[in-house]
């Protein structure tokens, strides 16, 4: 089988980069003095990056005219979820070592952790309903369920911003990209409504 002819095969490999990088760093002792923090943060930023890339597919299609880009959106979204799950696992396992009372206290104490958990809960149904079968079964509701990616992405940026001690520059960059991606959607929708409106008025008169 000619896997290498399929762009999805290459995209899959590219999406494994964050994990390959962490493995190489772990192997070569490059994770710094606090490897657990390094791993948790790295997985978290990649999960957020994955969400933003997934959200960039629609604007990229529209701006480039390559409608076929839609084919890669599911894989990108699933990889974002994959890194989100690893990020959560590294918190639960490496950072807290499954100390549930401490985790509960942490979630209550640190709203940003609750935000992170909420993002995970919102992304879970998206991942579970990503198959063709689920799309067919859900019909129009599929779109409604997958609308959850918007609050999830906003929650993820807030989750990041809230954890920072003082220097907000990194979360602001992610927030800026997200604002742009959401802003484009609002702008296009607004334009479409303005275009549709006169026709609607005319049909009524």
């Amino acid at each position: 089988m000619a896997f290498h002819r399929n762009p999805k095969f290459w995209l899959f490999l590219i999406c494994l980069y964050p994990i390959a990088r962490l493995s190489v760093l772990a192997w070569t002792g490059g994770l710094g003095a606090n490897p657990i923090e390094f791993i948790t943060r790295s997985l978290g930023t990649w999960a957020l990056t994955g969400l933003l890339i997934t959200l960039a597919v629609t604007p990229a299609r529209r701006l480039s005219g390559h409608g076929a880009l839609l084919r890669y959106r599911r894989m990108l979204g699933l990889f974002a979820f994959f890194y989100g799950v690893l990020h959560l696992l590294s918190y639960l396992w490496l950072d807290q070592f499954f100390d549930w009372p401490a985790i509960l206290k942490d979630v209550l104490k640190r709203p940003f952790i609750a935000f992170g958990m909420a993002v995970f809960v919102m992304l879970l149904p998206l991942a579970l309903t990503s198959t063709h079968a689920a799309m067919r079964r859900l019909g129009r509701n599929w779109q409604r369920v997958h609308w959850l990616i918007y609050p999830a992405a906003i929650g993820a940026v807030l989750h990041y911003a809230w954890l920072v001690k003082k220097d907000l520059s990194q979360p602001l960059i992610y927030g800026g990209v997200l604002a742009l991606l959401l802003g484009l959607r609002v702008f296009w929708r607004h334009k479409k409504q303005r275009r549709d409106k006169p026709a609607f008025v005319m049909s009524n008169s």
Binding site: A33, R110, W162
Partner: peptide
């Protein structure tokens, strides 16, 4: 205000 101080991770 944003995190617990009950525990710490000794580097290493």
């Amino acid at each position: 205000p944003r995190w617990s101080q009950a525990k710490e991770r000794r580097i290493g």
